[in-house]
Design a protein around this nucleic acid. Structure first.
Lengths: 341, 341
DNA sequence: TTGAAAGCGCTAACAA
DNA sequence: TTGTTAGCGCTTTCAA
């Protein structure tokens, strides 16, 4: 509990009989110091328990060796992969992760950027809720790398939702599905828009009809309403016009749908196939286990950090985002389309 | 991208025609400045887009308005509650959360503390892997608050595992279970030890026999081996000596057990009841949904941060940790004990 | 109530 | 190769 004053560079200098600048150099520019002096300085420093004060270093250099990661909701399991990947990438270069929660809100997210921009070397904004103008304002304050969001002029890392949508639709088509319902995510969700257009394109290519319901909140709870909407649609449609597959905006919603369908006695996948996005923890454990599009979120987090730190690389207006592949994990929530009988 | 030099306190002072110290006071000691001067200074500051540099403030004061939270594994869903709660508590007082991953390793965790202690106002160590000596070394570097770990002399916040174990055993006993297997967590896990002793005490009180297997890694994957061990025990035991309930060290392990039991055709809860600890995301979604002891982890995270910040409150050697209540969430993985026939 | 000056701990010219 | 000097941006004595 008793915390004595930490030794400073001056203490070490005095004790070692050299100038403070020499001590500084011994630590940060080993080449520019005599081998002997350096060894002696380090020995004295070790004996005194000295270590450079990162705050003072940061004040001088302007660099903090710290990166802020902002996610819409820390508690959402979908985002933990990004956090993990970013932390790994940072820790491996002795840097520090500041984690902030954007509260699913543009206002909160912008406040976070305002508050932190002097204390960090840059931001990784995951699934940012900010509009293009706000993103530009943020980027004027500190370097920004986007994840699963694109705006011209800012570097980014995105999952390949287009390729992923193709995998989903092709999987469903090969099982004989001809009509699918897409449960849309929140309006304004960039990834939601990408997923939807990807699905439309793929559906066109495979001769599958898709209809979109929603928007739905991307939560387990919203699944009940979504499932009811799907069942309503089915009973309103003629026998042979019934959708046989559901593609949900994300896994949480899909799992909520599964739960509700079970409650209402609709069997999955016999009557209805269900697909999600994200492959979150839990997707393999629900009943039936969920077929879903997996995204390499740890890798995306690490790539974003790398992009931020290698900031030298000029990111012109034309720089395309890095694309991280996705892959479909087929589990038991999808099966052959039921005969129209 | 172009980032012009940010205005400093000197710029504002010059522009406002006052001394730098007056600007400083206008921001940090509103009382000690003439109303008029203050208004004028703030107006100029706003016009110039000035905001105090937190790094410089920190260098001066030694306080960083930053707290580090160290968890054994960021990707483990069990820990996200603590992170969320801590972030909330910090953001509400304009402070910053640094998140670090202890890699389930004492060495890595101590390295993290070494690396960060100059840059933060203190540490919240969740389920720390450090031994008592290492904890004391850490506390000598910076204020430390423990979560779900206790050592004399350090403040802490712990879940009420003793009361929780009582709830679990009483629930099982009331369902007629007389023999239970406890699947132990990693050796050296403080919470594991608490859970086990709590279960033993409660078992004694309720006339339930408990046997411990393990240690098992607290992961889904380890569930297979654990389930096999339980089944082996059952077939070795005489008809009336068979355990009818399993209490797993945590939910991940319990879910792994459920998956393996299903694979091997053992029905839950008809043949065997299964209970977990933590109520992680996914526990409600697995099949059957898991009965588990829920812990208010967000609250624990917030309390730990509060304890750290209210550091004034002297924490003598005798200070007991704050206890956060737990509650049993009964789902469908537990049911009446099968008749011994 | 305000200003001048010193200093937080460190780094980076500039000389020597 | 090393020491001296002057800051980084801010806060805080100490006087006025």
């Amino acid at each position: 509990m008793e915390r004595p004053r930490r030794p400073t560079i001056t203490d070490v200098a005095a004790e070692a009989g050299v100038a403070a600048s020499t001590v500084s150099r011994a630590f940060t520019h080993p080449g520019r110091v005599n081998q002997h002096t350096r060894a002696h300085v380090l020995e004295v420093a070790a004996r005194l328990g000295y270590a450079p004060n990162p705050l003072a270093q940061a004040l001088e250099s302007g660099r903090t060796s710290t990166v802020a990661l902002v996610v819409p909701d820390i508690a959402n399991p979908f985002f933990v992969g990004f956090v993990k990947g970013a932390e790994r990438a940072l820790a491996s270069s002795q840097r520090t992760l500041v984690l902030a929660d954007g509260r699913e809100s543009a206002v909160a997210e912008e406040a976070v950027v305002q508050r932190l921009h002097r204390s960090v070397d840059g931001f990784v904004l995951v699934a940012s809720r900010l509009d293009d103008d706000a993103l530009r304002r943020a980027a004027a304050l500190a370097p920004v790398v986007l994840v699963n969001r694109v705006t011209t002029g800012l570097p980014g890392v995105v999952a390949d939702y287009v390729g992923g949508a193709e995998q989903i639709v092709s999987h469903l088509a090969s099982l004989g599905h001809r009509r699918a319902v897409v449960l849309g995510g929140p309006t304004g969700s960039w990834s939601g828009a990408r997923r939807w257009t990807g699905l439309q394109v793929a559906a066109g290519r495979h001769g599958v009809e898709v209809e979109r319901l929603g928007p739905f909140s991307p939560t387990f709870e919203a699944g009940a309403a979504a499932a009811d909407a799907v069942l309503g649609l089915r009973s309103a449609a003629g026998r042979d016009a019934r959708p046989t597959a559901v593609v949900a905006h994300n896994d949480l919603l899909a799992m909520g749908v599964l739960a509700r369908l079970a409650e209402r006695g609709a069997s999955v996948p016999d009557e209805l196939s269900v697909v999600g996005f994200d492959d979150v923890f839990g997707a393999a454990l629900c009943s039936p286990p969920l077929t879903t599009l997996a995204e390499r979120s740890e890798r995306a987090g690490a790539l974003a950090v790398d992009a931020l730190l290698s900031g030298g690389a000029p990111v012109g207006p034309g720089q395309p985002p890095q694309v991280v592949p996705t892959h479909l994990v087929v589990r038991r929530s999808t099966g052959p389309a039921p005969a129209p009988a």
